[in-house]
Amino acid sequence: MLPPPELPPLLTGHPVTDGDDPSRVALEGARAGHFGAGILCWSDETAVAAAALVLEPEVPLRVAAQMAPLMLVAIGDALGAIGPPNFSYGVRWPLTVLANGGVAGEVTLARPEGARAEEVPAHIVVGFRIALTLPDDLPGEPGEVAHLTALHEEGCGDIDRSALIGAVARHFLSWLDAWHHEGFTPVARVLTSRLEPEASVEGARLVRIDDTGSAIAVEGQGERGIPLTKALGIRT
Rank of each mutant, 00 (worst) to 15 (best):
L173W: 03
P60S: 09
A65F: 06
D160C: 15
A74C: 04
L151P: 03
F87V: 04
G203W: 08
L40P: 03
A78N: 12
E198F: 11
L27Q: 00
A68P: 00
P9I: 03
G203D: 06
R189P: 00
W175Q: 07
A81C: 11
D20C: 02
V103A: 08
D210L: 08
T236Q: 14
T46C: 04
D177A: 15
H171R: 13
R170S: 12
R161D: 13
R31Y: 01
A51M: 11
A122T: 02
E198M: 12
E198P: 00
R189G: 03
T229H: 13
L11Y: 05
I39V: 14
V48C: 11
G143N: 07
I82T: 10
G29W: 11
G114L: 06
A99S: 15
R111N: 01
L151C: 09
G102S: 15
H181L: 11
E6V: 12
T96N: 15
A50E: 14
A65E: 07
R24G: 01
S88G: 04
V48Q: 15
N86Q: 12
L195Y: 03
L151G: 08
G83P: 02
A74F: 04
A37Y: 04
V126Q: 03
L138W: 06
A217K: 04
A117C: 14
G127A: 13
S193K: 09
G157L: 07
L134P: 10
D77N: 12
E154K: 13
I165W: 09
E198G: 13
G143V: 04
H14M: 01
H123Q: 03
P139C: 07
R208D: 02
A163Y: 07
G36W: 01
G29D: 08
P197F: 13
G29F: 10
V16N: 00
E45A: 15
W179K: 00
S193Y: 04
I130A: 07
P142W: 02
A68V: 05
H180D: 12
I124L: 13
E219H: 09
I159R: 14
P4K: 09
L151Q: 10
E119R: 12
M1C: 09
T185L: 11
E219G: 01
L206N: 14
E223Q: 15
D211N: 15
G29H: 08
P186S: 02
G33L: 05
G83K: 07
D177Q: 14
D77Q: 11
P85V: 09
N100G: 10
A178S: 15
V190T: 15
A50P: 00
E6S: 11
E153L: 08
A26C: 01
E113I: 08
T96W: 12
P227Y: 03
D77K: 06
P15W: 01
V73M: 06
G38L: 10
P84E: 11
A131P: 00
G183I: 01
A150V: 03
P135Y: 09
A49M: 13
V107T: 11
C156Y: 10
E141Q: 10
H181V: 12
